[in-house]
Design a protein around this nucleic acid. Structure first.
Lengths: 218, 218
DNA sequence: TTTAAAATTTAGACAAGACTAAAAATTTAT
DNA sequence: ATAAATTTTTAGTCTTGTCTAAATTTTAAA
């Protein structure tokens, strides 16, 4: 049994963890949850007890697979309800959040499943965010090629199109991994090359690289 | 602000109060809520503080108008969601209760109102129970013909089927009006006549009368 | 009508989830 | 590398809603 409060913390941790394996700080969670750090520490201990997070004192937390599934299940419900509210009940996109925050905690597998059917298996909520499926898989509809990112925009590396060893080694050498934050400093139109900023160091990349790296805007 | 727990107690009290002015015992509430009497006493005090119930020690509670409205609002939501689950999500009538128990606590006037519109203003839930309107009025769809009331049952006059002057004058002469409380003393099967008690006086009526007067059990 | 039984309330305790203040660990900056 | 600043944890408290056990009031029975 996962309490309402636990679900909210798991969701917060999930959203704060930029990449799969990133650990999330107590303060960041507290800030997102609008609570004090001490309250967060208390909750982290409970989540750790229940196997939802891996916790090392002073080192922040990482979601376990169990925790990730719990978080994603809540997010799935949240986004399905948002679709329902907009499509069926005439809510506007900016009115749905607060209500969906309540509806996401309703516990009934049949309800979620039938709602999904009723809405004809939507893959995105009204804000364009992907809706996880019932197994916790998230359609990566939001990923775009780095080449499509505008100047001065930031994004996060979420995958590669070309997964040859050569390319992966190239990325490795330049400290680009899943979850790496990338800012586009400039784009040259004549050869489609780019200049990036990665962890405070600049990197010039070619068209080939820009067209083989998937990123997520954030 | 009414908490989730308070809402459940108010609902329980509402359902236990047979007639408008009946007071409900602590034990009865405890039994319905699956809690101990001491817990119920605690909650009664809170509800009394907030003006939802009138409370006299050892004498049970009565809902105030404020409390009644709060209870009815929850019941309205419960029944609307039941209609939604059955009509739109293909739940069967016996699967809806548990889920509706959760959904009834979602706080959003717009949600309730739009759900009502989406369902085209249903007046009864899938079990045939009336759905209160947004002002807390309950459609007396539960009205049945007086002829259907069992011996020793009490009911309240809520309307007539035959509205001819003759019939209305007949009712008037015998002090039967909207809201009059009627108790069925006896029923004769051979001619479907009945003996009633109205304001302490007995009245024998024919089949014709029994089949033209709508009453509400309560 | 006095006593026994049943119902109700009080008193004290506990778990969940939050807080404040203080202590401890980590990180940053000199 | 050490002091200062920041982050995190601990310790102790509070509120909500629950419990048990004991005390009190009401009701029922002899």
């Amino acid at each position: 049994m996962v309490t309402l409060s636990e679900e909210n913390y798991l969701k917060a941790i999930y959203h704060l963890a930029k990449h799969e394996n990133a650990s999330v700080s107590t303060n960041a969670i507290a800030q997102k949850m609008q609570t004090k750090a001490s309250s967060t520490t208390d909750m982290i201990k409970k989540l750790s007890e229940k196997g939802h997070v891996e916790y090392q004192k002073y080192k922040g937390v990482k979601l376990t697979e169990k925790g990730r599934l719990a978080a994603v299940s809540v997010i799935r419900k949240h986004r399905l309800w948002e679709v329902f509210l907009v499509q069926k009940l005439n809510f506007s996109w900016d009115e749905v959040h607060e209500v969906a925050e309540q509806l996401e905690h309703i516990k009934s597998d049949k309800l979620t499943q039938q709602l999904d059917v009723f809405l004809e298996h939507p893959t995105e909520d009204p804000h364009g965010d992907p809706i996880p499926d019932c197994n916790g898989n998230i359609p990566s509809s939001q990923k775009v090629l780095l080449a499509q990112i505008d100047q001065n925009q930031s994004c996060i590396c979420v995958g590669v199109k070309d997964s040859t060893t050569d390319f992966l080694q190239y990325l490795d050498k330049h400290n680009i991994a899943l979850g790496t934050k990338i800012k586009v400093i400039s784009k040259e139109s004549f050869d489609e090359s780019m200049t990036l900023k990665i962890n405070k160091t600049e990197l010039a990349i070619s068209k080939e690289v820009a067209h083989n790296l998937f990123v997520k805007i954030n």
